[in-house]
Amino acid sequence: MIRPFYRFIRAREKLMKVLFLLSSVFAVLALLVIFLFLMMRGIPSIANIGFFRFVFGTRWSVSDPNNQSFGILPMIVGSIYVTALATLIGVTIGLFTAVFLYKFCPKKIAKGVRQLINLLAGIPSVVYGLFGVMVIVPFLRNNVSSNGMGHGVLAASIILAIMILPTIVSITLDALHAAPEHYYEGALALGASKERAVFGVMLPSAKSGVFAAVVLAVGRAIGETMAVIMVIGGSPEMPNGSLFQSIRTLTANIALGAMEATGSILDAMIATGVILFVFTLFINVGFNLIKNKKKKPNKKKKPDKEEEATDEVG
């Protein structure tokens, strides 16, 4: 015989189980719906425009209903260009920052600086955009630009570089701290300077962590929208290499159009979304491949080896 109290507990347990299940179903469902929505609206639209004309078309023009053209190659190139430049700037600065915080400044300061850098990650992207419009763009226009333009490729890349900095710094720093300290001592004991020990031994031992940081940063940069729109200019032009050219990224293309677009134009936006989705998918898969790859040698390790004889991170 079950007393009412226990019956209540059992019922509650069941209810919780259902709740947990529903919650996880919700997450999966959301992903599924977004995916289906993108595919169901986007793929017919791509087919309509013609895959090659869409992906390799160099002209994007939607304002004149009689002379529309939906080529997003400029935006694909634009996204890759801006992301690559931002990653180059962000990773360079981020690596040096991480190395500095790792061995070249007092521990207390390192802790403080690291927290400040992590604060950067919490700033909304529209604020980055404002900062870009009000500080970076005028600065570039007045001091650097060759054509009187402050908006464009470089401004967007700088803003993105700042935005990815926290990711690079904190993951790289964690990876450096996870690398065994006795490598560092070993290098110093051979007469290596601090720089030599860090760049010659510690950073290479942390390389899978650094790589993970770069991939995450690329993912963040390629998906960023608001801050980019505010400083990139937004012309659907093919990048010509100039750092001060007004161009458009895939994200900017969607956001700029999606507010007012209807009909076939809206479909083209969604189709752009599909392409962006494919890009980020590749980055994610790449990230997971790296993560799994760096774990493998660990598992294959023979038992007679030292447990710390490994360059894994995390």
Partner: peptide, 15 residues
């Protein structure tokens, strides 16, 4: 340290 080499208690070859 170039003149005075050191071998540690735990083998620590670089990765």
């Amino acid at each position: 340290r170039k003149d005075v080499g050191m071998v540690f208690q735990k083998p620590n070859p670089f990765p």
